[in-house]
Design a binder for these strands. Structure first.
Lengths: 153, 153
DNA sequence: TCATTGCTTTACGTTTACGTCAACGTCAAG
DNA sequence: CTTGACGTTGACGTAAACGTAAAGCAATGA
């Protein structure tokens, strides 16, 4: 995780809460967000965020009835959205997230996780090959188009 | 049995389907396939193949009422399935296929096609980045797992 | 001749991933 | 106290991508 996390405006609240006596010093890791803020920032609807919660992909804190989102929820959302861009179904994305989150104390657990990692890797590498193929076909096609264009001009 | 209206092609197809090994007088580019053969070979159902036809992604020849698949249909099916592996919706896949097939005689057409190619390329390169990121995260995660495993052993 | 096999169309069912109300709670401002 | 901005939980709608009968020819095997 963290390889492609978007640098965001977590500084603003962190610095302004520096001298507040009422609130303990809030580091950026303490910041929380509402569902609307999260949805807007990630470019999805609140309905979508709630849908992901229904499927168990995220589980924000509840204060009373209201959802409170923390940094970990943002991390998960990033994973989810990238998974979606890659065309993975949400259920499969959930298994991936669970994989990252699963407690892996015992050796048997770790062996299992390593096996899952290999499966994931196979899948991703197949996709990468598909993309490379598609890109090179696209390049070849472009070359031919430009040839045709040159003959016309 | 009554008089056959168009006996020639129908019988050709029937006999070639019966024993394909003997029918090697035909060059491979002339070979045709039934919907079942195509479906089996590509690992999809005939319903799926017909669905793609409904959406205009393939348009096999018709002999009478029966669908006859040629090499170009197989090429298209390959494009479709790769598109699906990459998570593209079928409608978008159709536009890509149409792009490759579109007659591009005039310069304006070619300009348009080149623009489309760029869009496609952007999309694919975004996906590639996502895959690279996911793969490197996976690698990092694996490294940590192996560390944990070493500490246990 | 009859049954089987394969292809056909029509049409409704299903799953995924949400969208879209509806109806209600809550809290600060006017 | 009412209004309005957000929040909540259902519950139903929908589009994509097929699945799954149902029902019908047409050629072939027994």
């Amino acid at each position: 995780m963290g390889a492609m996390t978007t640098p965001t405006r977590e500084q603003e609240r962190a610095s302004s809460a520096r001298d507040g006596a009422e609130q303990r010093e809030r580091t950026s890791s303490d910041r929380t967000w509402t569902i609307r803020e999260i949805a807007d920032e990630f470019g999805v609807t609140h309905r979508t965020v709630r849908h992901y919660e229904d499927l168990g992909l995220i589980s924000p804190e509840r204060r009373g009835t209201t959802r409170v989102y923390h940094r970990r929820d943002r991390t998960r959302l990033n994973l989810i959205l990238r998974g979606k861009r890659l065309g993975f179904p949400l259920e499969e994305i959930r298994t991936i997230i669970d994989l990252y989150d699963r407690p892996r104390g015992k050796a048997s657990q770790l062996e299992y996780v390593l096996g899952q990692i290999d499966e994931r890797r196979e899948d991703l590498e197949q996709r990468r090959r598909d993309i490379e193929d598609a890109l090179s076909e696209l390049g070849e096609f472009e070359r031919r188009c430009r040839e045709d264009l040159d003959r016309l001009g």
